[in-house]
């Protein structure tokens, strides 16, 4: 609805940013494709339990949670607002809200919708502060602390049990053999791709990210776009929170440890340019699959947590430098 509103407010004339960087995007897709295939081949050859159906389902489910949020995050990055560092915390808070509603017998439908609205609102508030000129990283850092604090406060730092199995299928179900989270992930990727490439809102978002003064001069509501991107991100965090709460049958304030980092890593490794205005949610989705495969591969090779973080961190730093230099050369 907000997208439609934005669309009507805008004058005609699409941004030309799309044509500028297809080469870079193709290269990013190529890197990701090679990376994922290489991991699958190396993993399959060296690790007997890697290419089993059982393990791949685990990987897909892990990739789905990271991926769902990474898609929301990609809208933030594309709109020129870098990242939100509050993903983990917002997902935790949403899980707590969902668990409370389920425990108090509000029913699945009401709990689902109320949680998603709550998560959307929490995203929108952050977007509001950012649209006033707040630095996205610092704003979301602050809200993250607030969300985690509230989650600890309302749960008293204990488990909140759902107390009902009504939501279990959301977390553990496998319609047609594929986990529900992965259905959500794939559908969301397609929808996000379609909205960005084929709707007026999407193309406005690309223009706003690419050239803020130009977007402002042509009458686009730059602040509103930040709010919409953050709202969509909030919804994605809400979905992740609901699916985890449903899967484990409980919510607790230390759920999702390290999720924000994985999501940021997915966006960066996927090669979405940080200056905004370019890139696609599909890149973030592929990045999430790659990170999940890599994490799983390292886990099966009994890398310790420290080594896993070290590898992911180095990968992020190197990918950042690599894509940055690539971009400089093309410009």
């Amino acid at each position: 609805m907000i997208a439609g509103l934005l669309g009507r407010l805008a004058p005609a004339g699409g941004p030309a940013t799309e044509a500028q960087a297809p080469a870079r995007r193709r290269l990013a897709f190529l890197f990701m494709g090679i990376g994922i295939v290489a991991l699958l081949v190396i993993g399959g050859l060296t690790t007997p339990s890697f290419l089993t159906l059982e393990n791949l389902l685990v990987v897909i489910r892990a990739a789905s949670i990271t991926g769902i949020i990474a898609i929301g995050m990609s809208y933030i990055t594309i709109s020129g607002n870098l990242f939100a560092l509050s993903a983990e915390e917002l997902a935790i808070l949403a899980a707590c809200v969902f668990a409370f509603l389920m425990r108090d017998d509000y029913g699945l439908a009401v709990s689902l919708i109320a949680t998603l609205i709550f998560a959307a609102g929490s995203g929108a508030i952050q977007g509001g502060v950012i649209s006033l000129g707040g630095d996205p990283i610092i704003t979301t850092l602050a809200f993250g602390a607030l969300f985690r604090g509230i989650a600890s406060l309302v749960s008293d730092n204990k488990n909140i049990l759902l107390g009902t199995k009504a939501a279990e299928w959301l977390g553990t179900g496998r319609p047609l053999g594929v986990p529900t989270q992965s259905w959500a992930f794939v559908i969301l990727t397609l929808v996000a791709w379609f909205v960005l490439q084929r709707t007026r809102f999407g193309r406005q978002l690309l223009l706003i990210g690419a050239n803020r003064p130009a977007a402002r001069a042509s009458g686009l509501r730059v602040g509103q776009a930040s709010i919409v991107a953050m709202t969509l991100f909030g919804v994605c965090c809400g979905m992740a929170g609901i699916s985890a709460a449903a899967q484990f049958g409980l919510a607790v304030a230390n759920l999702f440890s390290g999720l924000t980092i994985d999501v940021v890593a997915a966006v960066l490794v996927g090669g979405i340019p940080l200056k905004g205005g370019q890139g696609s949610p599909v890149q973030a989705a592929l990045g999430a699959v790659f990170i999940a495969l890599l994490q799983n591969f390292m886990l099966l090779h009994s890398f310790t947590t420290g080594w896993r973080m070290f590898v992911i961190g180095s990968l992020v730093a190197l990918a950042t430098i690599g894509f940055h230099l690539l971009q400089k050369r093309q410009a």
Partner: peptide, 18 residues
């Protein structure tokens, strides 16, 4: 620098654990 130091933020934490 915000983006680059996210990478070192993760990597250094891993290094501390190692």
């Amino acid at each position: 620098s915000l983006v680059f130091t996210i990478g070192t933020l993760i990597g250094l934490r891993g290094f501390a654990m190692i």
